[in-house]
Design a protein around this nucleic acid. Structure first.
Lengths: 235, 235
DNA sequence: TAGATTGTTAATCGATTAACAATC
DNA sequence: TAGATTGTTAATCGATTAACAATC
């Protein structure tokens, strides 16, 4: 046992650069969902849970839960289960929720306003510092307590405030230019609602593209498939 | 050839209940993205494309593209490639975009309005018939050309108009009750933005849950991971 | 201690990639 | 015809599930 640990240690040291993702992508994708369910259990005042019970609630196999949670450390205790609070904290940390990132929202249309109103950011430890728009009528005002600036001030603001996240809810045509401005100003991640797949290879910024249309299509597909199975064919 | 078709036919008949998904789930998930890129190529006036070229544009392997497209019929032609228009049409059909589904939006808050304004539905062949809300001040008005009804009229409306899709942008607390109303009125699919995972086992309705918060967390994770690799550690 | 439940290995399953013969 | 490019098989890879010994 001892010797195996030593070998592992040496291996990790040597490969620090090569940096294989210790946690597989498939697991990362599932973590936000764990986070959500554990958060609910926590809110209910539950202290511990077994992989078997969680598997029933979340509709996945207990085996997968144990396998997943073991990717980033043995959190459970044999004969007891998992400590919900501890586990929730660990997942939060792993996902970066405890990093205290800041964000700006570009585009104060309906979607921008919806994102200004939601408590989603706060729950994930993200602070919204400002809204940006080109409409002079709203520049200077506050929307759900968030101040609106002119888009011309975006670059300076991001640089000065060291903004981490830029939320893009501008029209498709403006998306690339606004994204570039943010990236050049040092924004680290862009949350893109603008219905394009942004490719910013030149600058060190990660992009998360939201394609609601894709989701709508999947829903149509499921409806169609279900209809066919139920015998309500194309009619 | 004939005989193979016959055998297949018989097989399908016998297994209509068992219903193995002819097209794997992993492929279905990718189809909306194909649809998007092919739509763009079509708009550019392109007529044909090879798996090799498409693979470069979409950043996937050519092998995967050929494998994927072959799941639902040999659309390509050796030495030529794929006919973009034909392929686009086939994928549209497979996804249910040509079914002419109807939709209602429940909840006329910022998100509901954003969805009322977008051209996303029309592009996927979905017609929005109405908005529903409890706010008497807006009931009877029109938002982006869509008429607003009181939520009390939801059941009758859905039943009478045979609404296929219900979009849920109501507050979390109201989500389940509104969803049940729609499901009972015969709505086939629910597009759920209400930050809960709806479980409607009793009624024949499919649900597509949107969890924007999960996406925000993945972005945070990517930023954190990138920071660590770049050496801008936890500070 | 006995019972419960994890951590972990091995077996299975499915998805991706590589390769090339078929064919336009 | 020769060249290009698909359709399809086989090989690889990774993810999921099952099983059980370790251990709380």
């Amino acid at each position: 046992m001892e010797s195996i640990d030593k070998v592992k240690g040496t291996f990790d040291m040597k490969n620090r650069e090569a940096a294989k993702p210790a946690v597989p992508d498939a697991v990362i994708k599932r973590l936000p969902r764990y986070h959500r369910y554990l958060g609910e259990l926590l809110a209910e005042g539950r202290l511990r849970i077994s992989s078997a019970e969680l598997s029933k609630i979340m509709n996945v196999t207990a085996s997968q839960i144990r396998q997943d949670l073991n990717c980033f450390g043995g959190f459970g205790q044999q004969g007891y289960g998992y400590n919900i609070k501890y586990l929730y904290g660990k997942i939060s940390e792993l996902l970066g929720v405890t990093q205290g990132y800041t964000a700006v929202i570009c585009g104060a249309g309906n979607l921008g306003r919806a994102l200004a109103a939601t408590r989603m950011f706060g729950r994930r430890g993200v602070t919204r510092l400002a809204l940006f728009d080109i409409d002079e009528n709203i520049v200077g005002s506050e929307i759900y307590g968030i101040k609106v600036y002119h888009i011309d001030e975006l670059y300076d603001f991001c640089q000065k405030e060291k903004v981490a996240i830029g939320v893009l809810t501008v029209p498709k045509e403006a998306a690339y230019s606004v994204a570039m401005t943010m990236a050049r100003a040092g924004v680290k991640g862009i949350w893109n609602f603008a219905n394009t797949e942004l490719e910013i290879d030149a600058l060190p910024v990660v992009v998360e593209n939201i394609h609601l249309g894709d989701s709508l299509m999947r829903l149509c597909y499921e409806i169609k498939t279900k209809d066919e199975v139920d015998g309500n064919g194309d009619a």
